[in-house]
């Protein structure tokens, strides 16, 4: 087992460390959290708190069991997993949903593969997929924004029989039912800007992901051939959150530039197929998980050529 980084050369030294990156992503997610709590009320803060605490606790437990340095709990990765998990949950759930989700995320999504940097799948999405399969009733009990007359709603805008019409502005500002952290697009974009300025993420994965979903839903959308409402499909649902914050995860996305684009397109195709033809209204979670599994293959086929290397 070598401990060398496996990214393609040339290498450049940077002041970025894992800790700094993780905490920067956490900071970039704060505006979306504030927006979510503002939209759905203070009770959604419980979801965030329980999720993060559960992740930290589980991480600490595993670090102790595996005789690792307990300080690694605060490297930011567990907090980030907890935060992302909470953002993928409905804003009001039984209190134990985020707790179980956090435990599954860290234990099954991350530590069982060997801890930070070893996991194949995005831990937060593993937790969320487990919850979605296990308790579909709680995971689809969406809450309406607190200024709406009905408290509990049956459907997100993407649901196939949604009765309420949403304007683009509603979707952009987050005036709609949905997952806690996905609804307010503008708050998410503030965080994205921060990550882009600090060069923590590149636009390759998000743009190819969102672009693919846009094109497919435009061409094959339910409004007709080449008439699909692609702006709606990009703004509604969890694509912005998924594409910028989860598909770009360093551990579970490809290393090469070409690979990142392939990865983004793959996620986009799967998301669009699940949305248009699948049984679920939303497919971001499953498509990213699915493409996570394909990352080693993508990396192998998109290796950069060595300089001066002549193919025989």
């Amino acid at each position: 087992m070598s401990k060398l980084t496996v990214s393609p050369s040339p290498h450049i030294k940077s002041s970025q460390t894992t800790n700094k990156i993780m905490w920067a992503v956490v900071i970039s997610l704060i505006p979306a959290g504030i927006a979510g709590v503002y939209i759905f009320g203070i009770s959604s803060l419980n979801v965030i708190a329980f999720s993060i605490l559960s992740c930290i606790f589980t991480e600490a437990l595993f670090l102790k069991l595996r005789n690792k340095d307990p300080k690694a709990v605060l490297d930011g990765s567990a907090v980030l997993t907890g935060l992302l998990l909470a953002y993928n949950l409905p804003p009001q759930t039984p209190f134990w949903i985020p707790i179980v989700g956090g435990m599954i995320s860290i234990a099954l999504g991350k530590q069982i593969f060997g801890g930070l940097g070893q996991n194949i799948f995005n831990p937060a999405l593993v937790g969320r997929a487990f919850l979605q399969i296990s308790w579909p009733v709680y995971m689809t009990a969406w809450k309406n924004p607190r200024w709406w007359p009905d408290a509990i709603s049956g459907a997100t805008p993407l649901a196939k029989k949604a009765s309420v019409h949403f304007s683009y502005m509603d979707l952009f500002l987050g005036n709609r039912p949905g997952s806690l952290g996905e609804v307010c697009v503008i708050a998410l974009l503030i965080g994205v800007a921060f990550l882009l300025v600090t060069k923590i993420i590149s636009l390759r994965v998000p743009l190819s992901y969102i672009g693919t979903v846009g094109i497919i839903t435009w061409v094959f959308g339910k409004e007709g051939f080449f008439k699909g409402d692609f702006i709606f499909n990009i703004l509604a649902g969890g694509i912005i959150l998924g594409a910028f914050f989860m598909a770009t995860d360093y551990v579970t996305s490809p290393l090469t530039k070409k690979g990142k684009i392939v990865f983004g397109i793959g996620c986009g195709v799967l998301t669009a197929i699940i949305r248009l033809r699948g049984g679920y209204p939303e497919g971001v979670c499953y498509s990213i998980l699915f493409m996570n599994a394909a990352v080693p293959i993508i990396d192998r086929f998109t290796k950069t050529k060595k300089y001066g290397f002549i193919k025989k």
Partner: peptide, 15 residues
């Protein structure tokens, strides 16, 4: 107890 449906389905068996 809210049953964990995950364990009733195929992925639960694999796990």
């Amino acid at each position: 107890f809210d049953p964990i449906l995950y364990f009733m389905l195929a992925p639960g068996a694999l796990l």
